[in-house]
Amino acid sequence: MKKNILSLALTLVFCSTVIAGPIDGEKKEVKTDASTVTWKAYKVTGSHTGTIALKSGALEFDEGKLTGGEFTVDMTTINVTDLEGDYKAKLDGHLNSDDFFSTASNPTSTLVFTKVEASGKNSYKVTGDLTIKGINKPVTFDVSVYGSKATATLKVDRAQYNVKYGSGSFFENLGDKTIYDEFDLVVDLEF
Rank of each mutant, 00 (worst) to 15 (best):
M1W: 14
K43F: 08
L54K: 06
S35D: 15
V73I: 15
G46K: 15
K121G: 09
T67K: 14
L185W: 01
A150L: 10
V126Q: 04
N106M: 08
G68M: 01
S123A: 15
V112C: 07
I5S: 02
I52H: 04
S169D: 14
H48F: 04
D188N: 15
L154F: 01
E29G: 01
E63T: 15
K149T: 15
A58C: 07
S47H: 11
L8P: 05
E29M: 04
D82T: 08
V145I: 05
D157F: 01
E70S: 13
F61E: 08
H94G: 09
Y124N: 01
I135E: 14
A34N: 11
K31R: 09
C15G: 09
G120Y: 10
A152M: 03
S109K: 00
N173L: 00
L66K: 03
H94W: 07
K177C: 00
F100R: 04
E70Q: 11
E63N: 15
S102A: 11
T36C: 04
K90T: 10
K65R: 10
T110I: 08
A20C: 13
V13W: 09
G25S: 13
F71G: 05
T178R: 14
D24W: 09
D86R: 07
T36N: 07
V187A: 08
D142K: 14
D184M: 01
K40G: 05
P138A: 08
D82E: 08
E60F: 10
L154P: 05
A104H: 07
V30F: 10
T81R: 07
S47G: 03
G50N: 05
T151K: 10
A159H: 02
N173D: 06
S56I: 02
F170T: 11
T51I: 14
A53C: 12
N122Q: 09
V116Q: 00
L111N: 00
S109Y: 00
D62L: 12
H94V: 08
K40A: 05
I78D: 13
E117I: 01
L91Y: 05
T178L: 15
A150Y: 11
K125F: 04
M1C: 14
V143W: 00
V116S: 02
G25A: 13
L185S: 01
E84P: 10
V37N: 03
D99C: 00
K3P: 00
A34Q: 11
I132E: 10
A34R: 08
V73C: 07
E172P: 01
V112D: 09
S123K: 13
I78L: 14
K149C: 06
A89Y: 13
T51F: 12
A58H: 10
L66Q: 03
V187H: 10
E70K: 06
K31I: 05
G57Q: 11
T110Q: 08
E117W: 02
V116Y: 01
V187E: 13
F141E: 05
